[in-house]
Deep mutational scan, measured.
Amino acid sequence: MATDAALRRLLRLHRTEIAVAVDSAFPLLHALADHDVVPEDKFQETLHLKEKEGCPQAFHALLSWLLTQDSTAILDFWRVLFKDYNLERYGRLQPILDSFPKDVDLSQPRKGRKPPAVPKALVPPPRLPTKRKASEEARAAAPAALTPRGTASPGSQLKAKPPKKPESSAEQQRLPLGNGIQTMSASVQRAVAMSSGDVPGARGAVEGILIQQVFESGGSKKCIQVGGEFYTPSKFEDSGSGKNKARSSSGPKPLVRAKGAQGAAPGGGEARLGQQGSVPAPLALPSDPQLHQKNEDECAVCRDGGELICCDGCPRAFHLACLSPPLREIPSGTWRCSSCLQATVQEVQPRAEEPRPQEPPVETPLPPGLRSAGEEVRGPPGEPLAGMDTTLVYKHLPAPPSAAPLPGLDSSALHPLLCVGPEGQQNLAPGARCGVCGDGTDVLRCTHCAAAFHWRCHFPAGTSRPGTGLRCRSCSGDVTPAPVEGVLAPSPARLAPGPAKDDTASHEPALH
Results as ranks from 00 to 15, higher is better:
4 D>W: 03
5 A>V: 14
5 A>W: 08
5 A>C: 12
7 L>T: 13
9 R>Y: 08
10 L>T: 02
10 L>N: 01
10 L>I: 03
10 L>Q: 00
11 L>N: 01
12 R>T: 00
12 R>C: 00
13 L>E: 07
14 H>P: 00
15 R>Q: 04
15 R>D: 03
16 T>V: 02
17 E>M: 08
18 I>Y: 00
18 I>K: 03
19 A>H: 02
20 V>A: 00
21 A>M: 04
25 A>G: 04
26 F>K: 00
27 P>Y: 00
27 P>R: 02
28 L>Y: 01
30 H>S: 02
30 H>T: 01
31 A>W: 01
36 D>K: 03
37 V>M: 00
38 V>C: 04
39 P>V: 00
40 E>N: 00
41 D>V: 02
41 D>H: 00
42 K>S: 02
43 F>M: 07
45 E>Y: 01
48 H>R: 15
53 E>W: 13
56 P>H: 10
57 Q>F: 03
61 A>S: 15
62 L>N: 03
65 W>S: 03
66 L>V: 02
67 L>T: 00
71 S>A: 11
71 S>P: 00
74 I>D: 02
75 L>M: 06
81 L>W: 02
81 L>H: 00
83 K>V: 01
85 Y>V: 03
85 Y>H: 00
87 L>D: 04
87 L>A: 02
90 Y>C: 02
90 Y>H: 03
91 G>W: 15
92 R>F: 03
95 P>W: 05
95 P>V: 11
95 P>M: 14
97 L>E: 00
98 D>T: 01
98 D>Y: 02
101 P>M: 02
102 K>Q: 15
104 V>R: 04
104 V>H: 00
107 S>N: 01
108 Q>M: 15
109 P>K: 02
112 G>N: 06
115 P>G: 07
115 P>Y: 09
116 P>N: 15
117 A>S: 06
118 V>T: 06
118 V>N: 07
121 A>S: 13
125 P>G: 11
125 P>C: 09
126 P>L: 02
127 R>K: 07
127 R>Y: 04
128 L>Q: 04
134 A>F: 13
135 S>N: 07
136 E>C: 13
138 A>Q: 03
139 R>Y: 13
139 R>M: 10
139 R>T: 06
140 A>S: 10
149 R>I: 02
152 A>I: 07
155 G>A: 14
157 Q>K: 07
158 L>F: 13
159 K>R: 15
161 K>M: 08
161 K>S: 04
163 P>T: 09
164 K>E: 08
167 E>I: 13
169 S>F: 15
170 A>N: 13
171 E>Q: 12
173 Q>M: 15
174 R>Y: 11
174 R>G: 05
175 L>M: 11
175 L>G: 05
175 L>D: 10
178 G>F: 11
179 N>Q: 00
180 G>S: 09
183 T>D: 04
184 M>T: 06
187 S>M: 04
187 S>A: 10
187 S>Q: 07
187 S>K: 08
188 V>L: 13
189 Q>V: 01
190 R>T: 07
193 A>Q: 15
195 S>A: 14
196 S>C: 13
196 S>K: 07
197 G>E: 02
197 G>F: 08
199 V>S: 06
201 G>R: 08
202 A>Q: 04
204 G>Q: 08
204 G>N: 04
204 G>V: 02
205 A>Y: 02
205 A>S: 11
211 I>A: 01
213 Q>G: 09
215 F>C: 04
215 F>A: 05
218 G>A: 10
219 G>F: 05
221 K>L: 03
222 K>M: 01
222 K>A: 09
222 K>S: 08
224 I>S: 05
225 Q>N: 07
228 G>K: 07
230 F>H: 04
230 F>I: 04
233 P>D: 06
234 S>D: 01
239 S>Y: 14
240 G>T: 15
246 A>K: 05
248 S>Q: 03
248 S>D: 13
249 S>A: 11
250 S>C: 13
250 S>V: 11
252 P>S: 10
252 P>Q: 08
255 L>C: 04
259 K>P: 07
262 Q>G: 14
265 A>Q: 04
267 G>S: 08
268 G>A: 10
270 E>S: 07
270 E>Q: 12
271 A>Y: 07
